[in-house]
């Protein structure tokens, strides 16, 4: 094992990953390779709990935000209705509004409606989920909308001309065409939710801590190797999700010309 001793000039992300394997309490000197802090992090119940919360929120958020985003994108593409332009602009607000404002607004909202606390898990997380869905579905909608711009309307006409109903056309023609856009949008929703701090911080109840919030609270004392380990796990999940999404996006990459 090469000791990257004192290699402070490494990129921060690499440094963070490297020091999660460092057999030292302090992140200054390289003292040898260890999985110790992963074990430690794994055994820190509050950290695992926060991690599970984060995953649950991210999964639910991805599912709901993707469906909502796709529906909105298709509605805006397919139909004309009064106030369409206004609605389109309004829907994009969560993308441009500063997160801090959104967080405060969400907090005020949940306080005003008196969102119940003390529900069983995972309902304890429902307010965070709602907040995440609200700010991430426009990203899905924008991504899918972008894909729809290139859609050849004659494909839709051709499908109907061949006897397909509106639903069959959606199911067999439009949705498969949108697939790369949907996957990309879902990935954005997933990562936005998984690493969101600001909005989560304002909407999280006392018993619903997510991984970013937990890491923040741990860092307030010092950057411990457990934090590095937890952060590395977060990075790995995001990278895996990205790789999977990229593989899903290229279904036609299979070798061509089977029949010469």
């Amino acid at each position: 094992m090469d000791a990257p001793d004192g290699r402070r000039d490494l990129p921060p992300i690499i440094l963070l990953v490297v020091y999660s394997f460092n057999d030292s309490r302090r992140n200054i000197v390289w003292r040898g390779f260890t999985f110790k802090y992963y074990e430690k992090a794994w055994n820190t119940e509050s950290l695992i709990e926060a991690f599970v919360n984060s995953l649950a929120i991210a999964v639910v958020n991805t599912a709901v935000a993707t469906i909502l985003g796709v529906l909105v994108a298709i509605a805006l593409w397919r139909f004309r209705f009064p106030g369409k332009a206004a609605y389109e602009g309004f829907m994009m607000l969560p993308i441009v509004i500063p997160e801090i404002c959104m967080g405060v607004a969400m907090m005020a909202f949940f306080a005003r409606v008196g969102w119940p606390t003390g529900l069983p898990w995972p309902l304890t997380l429902s307010n965070i989920m709602i907040a995440h869905i609200a700010f991430s579905f426009p990203f899905v909608a924008v991504t899918v909308r972008g894909r729809l711009v290139g859609f050849n309307r004659e494909l839709e006409d051709a499908s109907k001309d061949l006897g397909a109903s509106e639903w069959q056309t959606m199911r067999y023609i439009v949705l498969p065409y949108l697939r790369p856009g949907i996957i990309a949008g879902a990935l954005i929703a997933f990562t936005l939710s998984l690493d969101d701090f600001v909005i989560t911080f304002f909407t999280a109840g006392p018993n619903s801590v997510t991984l970013p919030v937990k890491i923040f609270s741990m860092v307030r004392f010092s950057v411990t190797p457990e934090v590095n380990a937890a952060s590395t796990v977060l990075i790995v999940i995001t990278v895996i999700a990205t790789v999977l999404a990229m593989r899903f996006q290229s279904p036609s990459r299979r070798a061509g010309g089977e029949e010469g």
């Binding site: 050849n152 004659e154 494909l155 006409d157 051709a158 109907k160 001309d161 061949l162 006897g163 397909a164 109903s165």
Partner: peptide
């Protein structure tokens, strides 16, 4: 509607 007509079409872009 188009999907119930006994005719079919070849589109300009082939679609």
């Amino acid at each position: 509607p188009p999907n119930r007509r006994p005719i079919n079409m070849v589109f300009q872009s082939y679609a």
